[in-house]
Simulated scan of single mutants.
Amino acid sequence: MAPRFPAGAARVSPRPLHGAVLSLIVGCLTLAVAGCFHSAAKPVPPDSAAAQQIAAYAEQQAALRRDASLPQEELQEHCDQLATTTPGVEELRITHGSIESRQWTLIANASAPRWAFVRAKDGPPDGWTPKPGIAKLDFQPPLESALTARSSLFLAYAPVESYSPEDSQKSATARELFGAAQGDFTWRGRKYSYTLTSELPCFPLLQ
């Protein structure tokens, strides 16, 4: 079972395009219930070389998508695949030295998909939830160095080793639309690759 960020997540719409969208938060909160989350995120100076490198990479991925480097037909095919097999997507930020996150997913909205954040039951209206134990997932390179360089970034992730056709499709979609893997993390002995970007691809945000 893949990790998830938000706990008790309730989808924004009763008509989700992909009912099994993965996210790191549920896994993290499961550990929290077991008393496994003890360490808070350690901020990294915003002028560090790592922060600048990772933030620059995220901007590069967004710029490549804005340049529409893929032929329109191929891009549309990838976007259709994204709507049916969505990799895990989280928005991350650092607030008062601690990492917060909120899950994003695609929902059906009239005839066109829309990106929408997932609000946990009884959670805050804006969906942001503190995740002090995220360091337990052993992100390499660490996330803090990138997050201190800007207000927030989107993180897309998928399994490194595919155990099913769905795993393979999620990995391909993440690579084709979010960019090449920038790092990895480990959950229950299984490794996931991740990419940071400043924008979500293909579809507009739900207003």
Rank of each mutant, 00 (worst) to 15 (best):
R119L: 01
G127V: 04
T84E: 12
V89G: 00
P201C: 09
F139R: 01
D126L: 02
S101D: 10
S98L: 14
S101L: 15
S168L: 12
A108F: 07
I99S: 07
S111I: 08
Q103A: 15
L153K: 02
F178M: 05
E176K: 11
I107N: 03
P132K: 08
K121D: 13
V118T: 14
G88V: 07
L137D: 11
S193L: 08
E161Q: 14
L153Q: 06
D184Y: 12
W104C: 08
E90Q: 11
A172R: 10
S145E: 05
R102H: 09
G183E: 09
I107V: 13
T84C: 02
S151T: 11
T129E: 11
W115K: 00
F185G: 07
P201S: 09
P130H: 03
P130Y: 07
F185E: 10
L153P: 02
S162T: 13
S151W: 05
G133L: 07
Q169T: 14
Q169A: 14
N109Q: 11
Q182A: 06
R150N: 05
K170V: 09
K131Q: 12
P159C: 09
F139E: 01
L92M: 14
A112I: 14
Q103W: 12
E199R: 01
P159V: 12
S198R: 02
Q140W: 02
A174N: 04
A180D: 11
R93W: 02
P113F: 00
P132C: 03
A158S: 15
S98G: 05
P113I: 00
L177G: 05
T195W: 05
R188N: 15
W187Y: 12
L155W: 09
L92N: 01
E166W: 10
P165Q: 15
K121R: 13
T173S: 07
E91H: 01
R190I: 15
A146T: 06
T195S: 11
E166R: 11
P165G: 12
S193V: 08
F154V: 07
E91N: 06
A158K: 00
R175P: 03
Q103I: 10
S111T: 15
L106I: 11
D126I: 02
P87I: 04
T195D: 03
I107K: 01
S171V: 04
D138R: 10
E90N: 13
D122L: 08
E176S: 11
P132A: 04
G97L: 00
Q169L: 14
D167F: 10
S152A: 13
G123V: 03
T85C: 14
T186K: 09
K131D: 15
S193E: 15
P142F: 01
K170L: 13
E199S: 13
A135E: 15
K170G: 06
I99D: 05
V118P: 01
L106N: 05
K170Q: 15
W128Y: 06
D126C: 00
Q169I: 13
R190F: 13
Y192P: 04
P132I: 06
S162P: 10
A156Y: 01
T148H: 03
T186S: 12
F154A: 03
A146K: 02
